[in-house]
Design a protein around this nucleic acid. Structure first.
Lengths: 214, 214
DNA sequence: CGCGCTGTTGGCAGCATGTCAATAAGATGC
DNA sequence: GCATCTTATTGACATGCTGCCAACAGCGCG
């Protein structure tokens, strides 16, 4: 007879197990800094041997990369959902959408963005950079500047820089509570309008190949 | 007779030794990520036993805190050196000064700012926050908004957020090379002017106590 | 029912970190 | 010049985490 209906080991599909471990890792890394989360913690949280974490994700850093990627890659669901109105309307809608998203996943999102580089690590930096890349491209589409082939790199740089403003502003709102949502909205909207209407035209006016100067 | 003119141990004043070790740590952390720099590396670089590093700085993280503090705390030498002209002039001068400073210490500065939180560590976050605080206050003085007692917290939040823009923009220039110094200068100047002249007046117009809303 | 595939485990070896008593450099007094 | 005291400096130890790997055991298949 068998009283133990539950075997000490349960066999799951690789994808399922990997997903389960990743979910636990997301939660732990979201509420505690990188160094304070050991692979043992993740394994215990998932009810699994520690070695299995290494088996699926390799090094601890690789697991962390997956976590950051998940947290920072914003779903692309809404973009074609933007209104077709004039620039101010689209900018306003974009900012609203951004604020909705970050306020929803606030904790994990903050942890991911705050985690910039875990001390300058190149791989984490790369993941963050890729996420900024796609975000910048979508933003260019949103403000109707996707067609500029000439100064494409400069435009993306500008928008990525604006992403830094959006990040720090959202942090002032969600983390420090120094600003209200309305104030954040006003700041981001006005600033983006200024960049698109005043700064970018001046950049586009320069027909010089703009070789980098230090 | 004594052939060995150099004793195996050299005794230094605590401040001197501490400073020497700190200098080596600054260099190493400036060119390699946190996890890739062991206290052994720092000790070897300083020609010193590893235990001495712990003796002077405690844990490795404490040493790192000192390093970040040194790299991120910009000398306050220039601030009274700002011109007394109108707003645009002062903003222009402030941006120029900022770009000069970050381009000079570019490598170490980038590492420090990029190191935001080494994965969300609370202490590192605190050091960064303090540095942002003083930077924000100086910026408020520079643009002539230091006297606003009413919405002081909101103003500092706005300026700190602008600091995020300055950081990410400088990174686009120094690290990715996507923007030229002239473009960065234009972007930062125009944006700061917009914030001071358009956004802040609207915030100051609100006489509501602006309780945080999510 | 036996067998093979593979998800899963536990332990091993290496490395980094923090602590601490022992050591010796350099100053001080005689 | 020599003894002595202070303390900067060292070397070794214990601990904890990480990556790796061979052995183990679910679970499907014949």
């Amino acid at each position: 007879m068998s009283v133990e209906t539950a075997p000490r080991r349960r066999r799951l599909e690789p994808d399922a197990r990997r997903g389960q471990i990743l979910a636990c890792a997301v939660r732990l890394f979201g509420e505690r800094p990188y160094a304070d989360v050991s692979t043992t913690d993740v394994a215990r949280e998932a009810g699994v041997a520690r070695g299995l974490v290494n088996h699926y994700f390799g090094a601890k850093k690789d697991l962390y990369l997956e976590v950051v990627r998940v947290m920072v890659t914003i779903p692309e669901v809404a973009l074609e959902r933007l209104p077709k109105g004039d620039l101010r309307t689209r900018v306003d809608a974009s900012v609203t959408w951004f604020l909705d998203v970050v306020s929803r996943h606030s904790t994990s999102w903050l942890a991911a963005v705050t985690a910039r580089g875990m001390g300058g690590d190149a791989d984490v930096e790369r993941v963050l950079a890729e996420a900024e890349e796609v975000a910048a491209d979508r933003m260019l589409v949103a403000v109707g500047l996707a067609g500029e082939a000439e100064h494409r790199e400069e435009l993306r740089g500008m928008v990525r820089a604006y992403g830094g403003l959006a990040t720090s502003t959202a942090r002032e709102w969600l983390q420090r509570g120094a600003l209200t949502r309305a104030q954040v909205h006003l700041l981001l909207t006005t600033t983006l309008l200024t960049i698109v209407e005043q700064v970018i035209p001046q950049v586009l006016a320069d027909r010089e190949p703009t070789r980098p100067e230090r």
